[in-house]
Amino acid sequence: MTATVAVLSLGGTIFMSQDGEGDNARPDDGAAARLLATLAGDVQLLPETLANTSSSDVRPHHLAAVLDRARAVVDAGADGVVLTHGTDTLEESAFLLERYWDREAPLVVTGAMRPASDVGADGPANLRDAVRTVTAPSARGLGVLVVFDGHAHRADEVTKSSSRSVSAFSSAPTGPLGIVEAHDLHLLQAPRPRVAQIGGTLPDRFPPVPLLIAGLDEDLELLDHVPSAQLAGLLIAGVGMGHVSPAAMPRLRALLEAGTPVVVATRIPSGGTSTHHYAYPGSEVDLLEAGATMAGLLPPQKARLLLQTHLGAARESGAEVTTEGVRELFAPFAS
């Protein structure tokens, strides 16, 4: 039986072309058709362009449209869905989609580091591997995956680790989930239970949650000039295991006492935050005692989105946002 794969597109470098000098890549509305035409084989492709934009301009409403169409085509009989996406925020979109994707069929996100017009374009191989992953028996039930450079990654663990290499994505702390082969996805690890999904659909926009980076001589003075009422929450990319300067603590305590949730991740690429290693002012123990939540293994950009989904759902339902509720949300990602 011929497999059927829906190919949804939000654009990105994979569907861009360069100028005659090989620079200034821009969206190319014809690139998708040219690339898809190269994928001759036994799989029936159902292409649909939802947008053709850089990933820096992808919004929640774009991903809501992806969810609606992906669910519809799978419910109509498609074996799964490939989503093409720019690489800059690909890991964030995959993480968000994983919170909502509630079908057995795989949803595979891919893209490219080189434009379609480049002599060394990586888009064709990535798209081919994404389609192969969708049709692989071993991929069913794994949720949202990112396929890039011959490897498959879990949405919750993948991160863009190079701004230039065609091998742009890696997974921490486990490494890639599998290697894409011609007729299956060769798993390098035993599948683990997925973190509970939120369900429903994404809102058009999320509540405002800025991300501030801690560092040497950074006391988060910006918070003195932002009324707490304008912040639905705050995400801190802390130093080390999730630390801030002692001088930043009064500002964070004031926010927490006013009911604004504060989540602290680490700016370090691996290792995550702690809950008990250090107890000096501004350390993780001090932050926890003040009411903050530690993000665990989630990097700042994903932790921010997880907090925003929680705040958005609470706003929609009228539920109270509590410290206990936020900590429960992040508990599956504890390090």
Score class of each variant (00 low, 15 high):
5 V>K: 06
5 V>C: 09
11 G>H: 12
21 E>G: 15
22 G>V: 01
29 D>A: 14
30 G>E: 05
34 R>K: 12
39 L>C: 08
50 L>Q: 13
52 N>W: 06
55 S>I: 13
63 L>D: 05
64 A>L: 15
66 V>W: 09
68 D>H: 13
70 A>W: 03
71 R>T: 03
88 D>Q: 08
90 L>H: 07
91 E>T: 00
97 L>F: 12
101 W>N: 00
102 D>M: 04
104 E>P: 11
112 A>G: 15
116 A>P: 05
116 A>M: 12
118 D>F: 09
126 N>K: 06
128 R>G: 10
131 V>W: 11
134 V>K: 13
138 S>H: 08
138 S>C: 06
151 H>F: 14
155 A>C: 07
159 T>P: 01
173 P>I: 05
179 I>W: 03
180 V>C: 04
180 V>T: 06
185 L>A: 07
190 A>L: 06
193 P>D: 07
195 V>L: 05
196 A>G: 07
200 G>W: 10
200 G>F: 08
207 P>Q: 05
212 L>T: 01
212 L>Q: 02
226 V>D: 04
227 P>R: 09
236 I>Y: 02
240 G>P: 12
241 M>W: 06
242 G>L: 14
243 H>C: 08
247 A>R: 10
248 A>W: 03
252 L>P: 04
253 R>S: 11
261 P>I: 10
264 V>R: 00
266 T>C: 12
267 R>Q: 12
270 S>F: 12
275 T>C: 01
276 H>Y: 10
277 H>W: 09
280 Y>G: 04
293 T>K: 03
294 M>E: 01
300 P>I: 07
305 L>N: 02
309 T>E: 05
312 G>E: 11
319 A>G: 11
322 T>N: 04
323 T>S: 06
323 T>R: 02
324 E>S: 14
326 V>H: 07
332 P>L: 10
335 S>F: 13
